[in-house]
Design a protein around this nucleic acid. Structure first.
Lengths: 345, 345
DNA sequence: CCTCACTACCCAAACGATTGGGTAGTGAAC
DNA sequence: GTTCACTACCCAATCGTTTGGGTAGTGAGG
């Protein structure tokens, strides 16, 4: 487009070149249509715009921010971007932010309260206009603090009562799985429940348990195993579930695809054939699920949209609107890993 | 820490409060040790620092950047963050940048030349100090342009001759796989080679082919199938490889774990048992490989370190040092998917 | 001819920090 | 009692924009 390094030409340069005052140029280039109209004759405006384009003028964002107190910068905090789920949500954010002419910082908190705080401070010290928080813990005390400090923010992925959030309807998702497994004849089920501080984990588990019980089933507390969200977490949890050979469940619901994959690994090493001896259902329907050697049933959550909606909500907040939380509906995708009738059911 | 919104207190406020001049406060807080010494009496310095901490002073980055022409901002461009490999590298970047007091923008280009350019312009218009490019295409013409515009940048993940980069030694990685499969008795092999514009794909393929031939094997061109890097890409490629039942290879090397997983799925649907009828080896050793129902052999690449090194290189460039490309050594991890002797070998 | 309302601009003060160049005041050396 | 070298500061310009408030000049209306 241009062969000049951005920042090499300023408003003042443009003005000098054209024999105008910087303020006039500013109004023409950045003012709203009516301001621009009042600021200059149409012919002048055209000259300015043409020169600006020709020399590749791009306004200095720091000077602008310094003056306007707005940065067009959004901060995003996630547990870890190497969690595919969050990565996809971030893609949604990236897209939506881009469309709205915002840029985003994203940082990993590793779900560590100290790091969460630190990253938040970094973002605020960078003067982001608002925050999208993807790693909220159910205790939520950081959030109260943010509210008190009047920092505009919204939650994503994990919901906390009282704060605006963009999430999947996790309770419904859990319920869909319960219904499915029940319909297939499973009566002994276990849950790899994820981290107890994450609403995703808690809601999916709760949705599942509550539907399963409504249907007449029973789920002992011992059948609910909390775990990390990754493959090793799932493996360990499944291992502890399957170790007791007397009372093995015929189906396992893992609240996360990666945990489900870990569980598949564990099932394997216990000599169980997933999709025949044991049903496994995951959550999120990441791109892997359908491609696994034994295709994994999973609840599809609209991750991309969640990211997009999060941006929309935050922009709403920045705009002073009263925003409402959005819960997007999930869809169950049944595949080989659970597509069979339970023999004992 | 503080209950005040960052930005509410300025250098001038501090100065006024203490009866000093802003410049004095600036030198004390931000000057190098010797500047600070000359600027004020030790007692004054202490008073300033104490007050700054007490009121939670944090300098306005925009004012600073405006004056100093440096932003302490790094731009990172990757094909997609939902590619686990890039996500992990970005975690390395995030860490290293954080340690060096830099913040990073990261954007997805989806390997689309137009988007690459656009995102680059956005980053430059944000006045990043430098760029880490994780999606370089072998034709490399954007890079020449950046060089001409004197934008400081380094490459990551993918290397291009003539530019500083932080990568895995992909050629070696490919060779390790060739050696392994050869040792296991495989003589008919195929390669799911990835995207031809990516050095990772080309080098891994080349490293493999060249070692295999050195060992005395033959690889027809038809056994090299270029493909997308994701699971569907791998599935499609493997499908085309396995479709010809007469001349099926006994082993497949996929230059990427996700492609390998896709290939496993394809093998499955062709009635082949991976780890017995067909060996599959992937690349990168992502966290999934070891946990799959059939554990996937893979070449471990130091993704986190690659990200860290990329930052180090870029900071070197910014510092005016002459930096050299770094290629980190990979390690082969043999698992069930290839841990058997080839029957026909 | 004076007033009035436009049009098409200009002026200057911010925003918050940095930095090259002062300058009072003090104590010591000559 | 000058001169000199410090110490411990202060001053003011500057970075690139934005924005509230002008002001010449023009044409019309009275």
């Amino acid at each position: 487009m241009t062969d000049i390094r951005p920042g090499s030409v300023t408003l003042k340069d443009l003005a000098a070149e054209l024999g105008l005052h910087p303020s006039t140029v500013s109004r023409i280039l950045h003012g709203k249509t009516d301001t621009a109209r009042g600021a200059a004759a149409p012919a002048t405006a055209r000259r300015v715009r043409e020169l600006a384009k020709k020399v590749g003028y791009s306004p200095d964002p720091h000077a602008t921010s310094l003056r306007t107190r707005r940065t067009h910068l959004l901060g995003v905090i996630v547990p870890r971007l190497s969690d595919l789920v969050l990565a996809v949500m971030y893609e949604g954010i990236d897209e939506a932010a881009d469309d709205a002419n915002y840029s985003t910082f994203v940082m990993n908190s590793r779900d560590d309260t100290l790091i969460q705080r630190r990253k938040m401070e970094i973002m605020l010290s960078r003067r982001v206009d608002g925050l999208i928080i993807g790693d909220a813990h159910l205790d939520g005390n950081i959030l109260d603090e943010l509210t008190e400090r009047q920092v505009p923010f919204v939650l994503m992925n994990r919901a906390i009562a009282g704060f605006a959030s963009a999430t999947c309807d996790d309770t419904l998702g859990g319920a869909l799985v319960a219904q499915h497994l029940w319909d297939q004849g499973h009566r002994d089920v276990a849950i790899i429940a994820g981290e107890p501080y994450a609403s995703t984990a808690v809601d999916r588990t709760h949705g599942f348990v509550s539907r399963f019980r409504t249907l007449g089933g029973t789920i002992p507390e011992s059948a609910i195993v909390w775990s990390r969200f990754d493959t090793t977490g799932g493996h360990t949890a499944a291992d502890s579930i399957l170790r007791d050979t007397d009372r093995r469940p015929s189906a396992i619901f893992a609240v996360n695809d990666f945990a489900a994959i870990g569980a598949m690994g564990a099932a394997n090493s216990h000599g169980l054939h997933v999709g025949r001896d044991l049903a496994i259902v995951g959550f999120n329907d990441t791109s892997l699920a359908a491609q696994l050697p034994i295709a994994l049933s999973s609840v599809r959550s609209p991750m991309l949209d969640i990211g997009r909606v999060a941006v929309k909500l935050l922009l709403g907040v920045l705009n002073g609107d009263a925003v409402e939380s959005v819960r997007l509906a999930p869809v169950l995708c049944v595949r080989d890993s659970s597509d069979f009738r339970c023999a004992t059911g």
